[in-house]
Structure formats: C-alpha cells, structure tokens
Amino acid sequence: MATDLNQLLQVLLKSKIEFVVIGGFAGLIHGTSRVTRDLDICLSMSEDDLEKLRELLRPYNPKHRRNPKEKLSFLDVPQNFQGWKNLYLETDLGILDIIGEVSGVGSFDRIKKKSVSVELYEHSCRVMSIEDLIQSKRALGRDHDLLDIQELEQIRHRTHNRG
C-alpha cells in the first residue's frame, strides 16, 4: 500500500491535537537530505489527546506495529492510556510513532517550548528545534543518527553565519 506521510501530517495538523514533529521528518523540514520512512511526533500522552488521536486515525486503519505476529488495532487497544509512554503505529497513510518523552531532550512541554513554527499546508506546524534534534540523535547514537548530526550541525552553522 502506498504511504503518504505528508497527508498523514496534514490530518494531524487539521486536528486540535498539539504535537511537535520530531525525528527524520523534523530533519527534512530543517533541510537534511536523508529521507525518512515514518512520521515521528511528540505528544503530551494525556488520555484526552490520545483518545482524540484514536478518533482521528479511525479512517486509516491504525494498528500497533511492534508485534509482527499480531498487529492489534489501535481502535481497540489499549482501553485506557494510563502508563503508556510511546505508541508505535502503522496506518493506511504510513508509520506514525508517537513519543511522550524524547531521550536526551525531555518531555513534550520542554520540546514544545524550544520548538520552531513552520507554516505547512495552511497550518502552523511545530517542529523540534535543530539543537534538540541534534541532542536527541546524540542520545540515540545509531550510525545514521551520527551522519544526521553532521548535516544538522552544518545547517545550524550556516544559519548562524547568516544572522
């Protein structure tokens, strides 16, 4: 099935859910060259927001993707969100990972405070700042994260030199 992460982002932007784009998608928005296969967002993980998310994703067949043997529907599981820190979903529009707290950076409130606002699809989209993105990738430390850090640092350097 063809994915459309941009459409998934538009669906989220049209909703009243507050979120910050993080991960590879945030890197793309800042100007990195590596493409990403999923959309990562940071949410407050409140019961209210997660229930809204569930209803929002209803038309797109959302499923928990971490257990390949049994992909349970997000519409049925969990019944309540108490204690859930992250959600890893697949939808008809693509993979959506919802993170409550980003390693090396902090909570949704902390990330939102330092986020930048970018106009996308006629909406204001909050995107993780370059500094936070670099920090989060340092914390993950995977090979491709280290490459991303190099590129993000070059972008940051270029930006500061212009100012």
Binding site: K112, K113, K114, S115, V116, S117, V118, R126, S129
Partner: peptide, 8 residues
Amino acid sequence: GHRFKSTS
C-alpha cells in the same frame, strides 16, 4: 516571506 520563527 520568511521561513521559520521560534516559539521561544
């Protein structure tokens, strides 16, 4: 007319 503005 511009690209980014920070929320901080």
